[in-house]
């Protein structure tokens, strides 16, 4: 059981189209930024080895998703088993900020997590490198939102200039690892129930 996921931490990045999900992922995983990212269709993931609190090592699987709402219907399959969900808005886009809550709800519905109250979310306000005059979401509003979502960690980031990206993902990794371990523990119980069902099916379907 200890090698159940070989400490693979599954992290899902959600948020409106164009808030910078792909850029954040690439900045974190490859420490690169490009103006030339194409719109994401479906989902991609990258993996990165992470050191958490300098003594634990894990592989983080970062999932980048399409931002358009209708793509949510495709995403459900990989929401499942997530260890942390990163919610991203664009500090220059009010709507992307207003939609954060619905992204979270959407995630909780589909991910089918055992304890939604404690499932780790991290909120990122991206594009803080932009000119102040263009920023429309205040830090205060962001802090209030983070508090209302259960005091989830909040970071103001810039994938472009790398501000806070590593810091944020350190926190994400930590939360994910915590969740992963909790999950594994509580999983044992569910698991025992499930075995029987599946074995029944086996005897029926296995004709060899």
């Amino acid at each position: 059981m200890s090698t159940r996921k070989k400490n693979i931490l599954k992290v899902i990045i959600l948020g409106d189209s164009g808030v910078g999900k792909t850029s954040l992922m690439h900045r974190y995983v490859n420490d690169k930024y490009s103006q030339q990212y194409k719109a994401t269709i479906g989902a991609d993931f990258l993996t990165k080895e992470v050191n958490i609190d300098s003594d634990k090592v894990a592989t983080m699987q970062v999932w980048d998703t399409a931002g358009q709402e209708r793509f949510q219907s495709l995403g459900v399959a990989f929401y499942r088993g997530a260890d942390c969900c990163v919610l991203v808005y664009d500090v220059t886009n009010t709507k992307s900020f207003q939609n954060i809550k619905s992204w979270r709800d959407e995630f909780l519905v589909h991910a089918n997590v055992s304890t939604p109250e404690t499932f780790p979310f991290v909120l990122l306000g991206n594009k803080i490198d932009t000119d102040d005059s263009k920023k429309v979401v205040t830090n205060k509003a962001a802090q209030e939102l983070a508090a209302s979502l259960g005091n989830i960690p909040l970071f103001f980031t810039s994938a472009k200039t790398a501000i806070n990206v590593d810091t944020a993902f350190q926190e994400i990794a930590r939360s994910a690892l915590q969740q992963n371990q909790n999950d594994a523990d509580s999983f044992e119980d569910d698991f025992n129930d499930a075995i029987n069902i599946q074995l029944d099916n086996d005897t029926n379907s296995c004709s060899c």
Partner: peptide, 24 residues
């Protein structure tokens, strides 16, 4: 397929997470 490795199947079940209740 289940026939080669039952363990796979169990793993699959585990990894499909809490959807296992649907199986019922």
């Amino acid at each position: 397929s289940n026939k080669h490795n039952n363990k796979n199947n169990l793993n699959k079940l585990m990894n499909s997470g809490f959807s296992s209740n649907h199986h019922n």
